[in-house]
């Protein structure tokens, strides 16, 4: 499998009043073409910062070290102008809350057209056809009509479909999905996961799937990176991580997941877990 994305020894540092803080420290992983890599971790683990570093979307003031190569090209240190050309074209990202990623004043069609024409040019009419096709492709019924809808006219799951349509309209090599199903109901989540897996198989896009939910990761990823407090805890195939975790923290995380197959009479969870005072306050 040839690697599409190679992240090596990535460190992200933020300046604070108490001096610089590394929010990501020495993280390395790779994503193959046609592969889904999961990044899991609890709050403050640095999983979202890792993805923002790849997209070149880190907040101002953050500095990066290490290397991020997409298709062999180094992304770190490239001017914003060039990254902007890559974003949406070579790499795209979808977020947890589609409502805050869509402009409420424009129809979704217009927003997809804008995105498409920014990278591919062409007439508005042609772009509209592309938008309609993209909306149909993500399973929205009657895309010819929905293309003229505003974001608020869609349900949460439909909005996430719109975001996916927009992210994939230029057929990027890499898609980063940051908690894309976290805000959705469980039945809708199942639909979106199926959709993402299907689209990925079809188009061969490399997918980075970020979540706090290990069960979701296990159903979609081939390789998994476990993060904690900015550090890489463990990285391996899904089977290794879930069946033969090496690290104590990974085992603890897996023990903590509530299982639908366990009942009240089973031994309590969290027997490996320390006291509440062990929690970090960020």
């Amino acid at each position: 499998m040839s690697e599409l994305l190679v992240v090596q020894d990535l460190t992200v540092t933020f300046p604070t009043t108490r001096g610089p803080v590394d929010v990501v420290r020495g993280v390395s992983f790779a994503v193959g073409r046609d592969e889904t890599v999961g990044i899991v971790g609890e709050s403050g683990s640095g999983k979202s910062m890792t993805s923002l570093a790849i997209m070149g979307l880190l907040p101002k003031g953050a500095t990066t070290r290490g290397s991020i190569r997409l298709n062999g090209t180094e992304l770190l240190g490239r001017p914003d102008r060039e990254l902007r050309r890559l974003r949406g074209d070579q790499m795209s990202m979808i977020f947890q809350d589609p409502l805050s990623s869509l402009n409420p004043y424009y129809t979704v069609g217009l927003q997809i057209e804008e995105m498409y024409r920014a990278h591919r040019g062409g007439t508005r009419k042609a772009a509209r056809e592309v938008a309609i096709r993209a909306l149909g492709h993500v399973g929205l019924p009657e895309p010819e009509r929905r293309v003229d809808y505003y974001p608020h006219q869609f349900s949460g799951g439909q909005r996430q479909r719109v975001m996916i349509a927009m992210a994939l309209v230029c057929e990027p090599a890499l898609l980063i999905a940051d908690e894309p199903t976290t805000a959705l109901d469980v039945t809708v989540q199942a639909q979106i996961l199926r959709l993402l897996a299907g689209l990925q198989r079809e188009s061969g896009t490399g997918l980075v799937f970020i979540t706090h939910d290990l069960a979701v990761i296990s159903s979609i990823a081939t390789r998994v990176l476990v993060m904690r407090r900015g550090e890489q805890v463990e990285y391996g195939t899904a089977e290794q991580i879930f069946a033969e975790p090496e690290h104590e923290y990974t085992r603890m995380l897996l023990e903590s997941i509530p299982r639908i197959d366990d009942s009240l009479d089973d031994p309590p969870h969290g027997s490996l877990i320390g006291s509440p005072d062990d929690e970090v306050i960020l």
Partner: peptide, 22 residues
């Protein structure tokens, strides 16, 4: 039934192997 079926689960085989190891 739909609700229960939609819950993402970890492969029970993986779970079993992990529990045997620890």
């Amino acid at each position: 039934r739909t609700l229960l079926a939609a819950i993402p689960r970890i492969d029970p085989e993986w779970d079993r192997r992990r529990r045997e190891r620890s």
